[in-house]
């Protein structure tokens, strides 16, 4: 399954490395990354493949959210379909 990970928080060094390592620990493959900083605010979207993820989707969602909370980041993961449906005819 393909999913979109969104990450927001105050910008600092190492955010991308941390989030990538969270995803690697769960065996998720990163397909694409889009990242920017707006007025010291870090925002990133990642397209990932969860086909070989070692935990079910709901657990992945709570792990990312909990890890994010500890790192002062908001991290959420949602299936890609919902975004495509809303913006593509």
């Amino acid at each position: 399954m393909r999913a979109i990970v969104t990450v927001t928080g105050k910008d600092r060094k190492g955010i991308i490395a941390e989030v990538c390592s969270f995803l690697a620990q769960q065996n998720c493959n990163i397909l694409d990354i889009n990242q920017t900083v707006m007025q010291e605010f870090f925002t990133m979207t990642m397209l990932i493949d969860t086909a070989e993820c070692i935990v079910p989707f709901d657990e992945l969602s709570s792990i990312l959210s909990e890890n994010g909370r500890r790192s002062a980041l908001s991290i959420r993961v949602q299936r890609e379909d919902i975004f495509n449906a809303m913006y593509e005819i």
Binding site: L31, T36, R76, M86
Partner: peptide, 12 residues
């Protein structure tokens, strides 16, 4: 991948 603004637009 979709535009970052569209993704954050949905989340908003």
């Amino acid at each position: 991948m979709l535009d970052i603004n569209k993704i954050f637009g949905t989340i908003d």
